[in-house]
Simulated scan of single mutants.
Amino acid sequence: MTLTPDLADLDLFAAVARARSFRGAAKARGLSASSLSEAVRRLEDRLGVRLLNRTTRSVTPTEAGLRLLERLTPALDEMRAALDVVNGFRDSPTGTLRLNVPGILARVILPPIIAGFLARHPGITVELMNEDRFIDVLAAGFDAGIRYGETLEQDMIAVPIGPRVQRYVLCAAPAYLAKAGYPEHPRDLLDHACLRHRFPHGALTPWEFIRGEEVVRIDASGPLVSSSIEALIAAAEAGLGLVFGFEDWLGPPMRAGRLAPVLEDWWQSFPGPFLYYQSRHLMPAPLRAFIDHVREIA
């Protein structure tokens, strides 16, 4: 029997095997998990060997699957690079750029950067996936990721993107402060109503404040805990308590006077985000164009 598996099925198998998840690979590719499952099943039937062990909790490559993935990955990369050479003969490259970014960047910082990039390169489609957890973006099928202060592997390159300095700020509605009073020290927050942000992966992190050499972390409590910053801002504007978060989120209602700054001399600054990607000689044209755009507007 001649083995002639479909190239698309091989590519989808590699995506699932690297992500160790049908759902994760489907999310990165913008496809349904069932379509990826069918592609892998079709490939296994064509080859006559099981490539993935599937349970309700995990997906792991078999020995045959691992061997195939090892040989397939450089071949697929080389094929994409060969096809991408054609992009060098166009006035503007075409293709898809897949980026994995935290929610704050996708909402506040990235939109004007992406808008300018797409205006310059109408032949490129950008697929943006919000992800607040740190993941292996390459294994999940993304071209690059954007994160804050992450430790990068040796073969990763980081390029500054967006503002180089950002701040965490604390604020509350003037009506709340008139009623409850202004905290004079971060520890005073233990006696105040505090509106907490819970990250999508479940973490409820302490509020951290810095002044000189003094660092204070507060596990505040209050009437609302939410993963929605919009809900927290609305509650703060309604006078329900203090809210703590990115200045990019809270700056607009403060400038409008709906919220007032609190403990400004304790606000913490931190470095801005980085675009990071794998070092490689043959880079996909959409990613190369995006890196050039980011560097130009820095």
Rank of each mutant, 00 (worst) to 15 (best):
L110Y: 06
L47K: 00
A25P: 00
G123D: 04
L110A: 00
R41K: 11
V101S: 03
S35M: 09
L68N: 04
R90K: 14
F117I: 06
R67D: 15
A64P: 00
L68E: 07
F117W: 04
R57A: 14
A82V: 09
G116I: 12
P61E: 14
F22S: 02
L105G: 07
R54D: 08
R107K: 14
L72F: 02
R41P: 01
L52Y: 04
N87A: 11
A64V: 09
D45A: 12
I104N: 06
G30T: 10
P93K: 01
V101G: 03
R41Y: 14
A26R: 03
I124S: 01
R23A: 12
R23D: 10
P61M: 11
L69G: 05
V49F: 13
T55D: 09
V49W: 06
A75M: 15
L31K: 06
R90A: 08
A28G: 14
N130K: 14
P93R: 02
R57L: 09
F117D: 00
A75Y: 13
R67G: 08
V49M: 13
E44I: 02
R107P: 00
D91R: 08
V40H: 01
L52I: 14
I114M: 12
R80C: 06
G65P: 00
P111N: 09
R54Q: 13
R54V: 13
A115W: 04
R42P: 00
A19D: 13
R20K: 11
H121E: 09
A81F: 02
S32A: 10
I114G: 00
G48V: 03
A19L: 07
R71Y: 06
G24A: 15
I104E: 14
A26K: 02
P93H: 11
L66P: 03
P122Q: 15
F22I: 05
R90S: 12
V126H: 01
L118H: 01
L36N: 00
V126E: 04
S92R: 15
L69K: 01
L99M: 06
D45M: 06
R23S: 12
A119E: 15
R107Q: 11
G88Y: 03
A115K: 04
S58R: 15
L97H: 03
I124Y: 01
R90H: 14
S37L: 06
S34M: 13
S34G: 05
L69Q: 01
P122S: 12
I109T: 15
L43F: 13
R20C: 08
A64M: 09
R20Y: 10
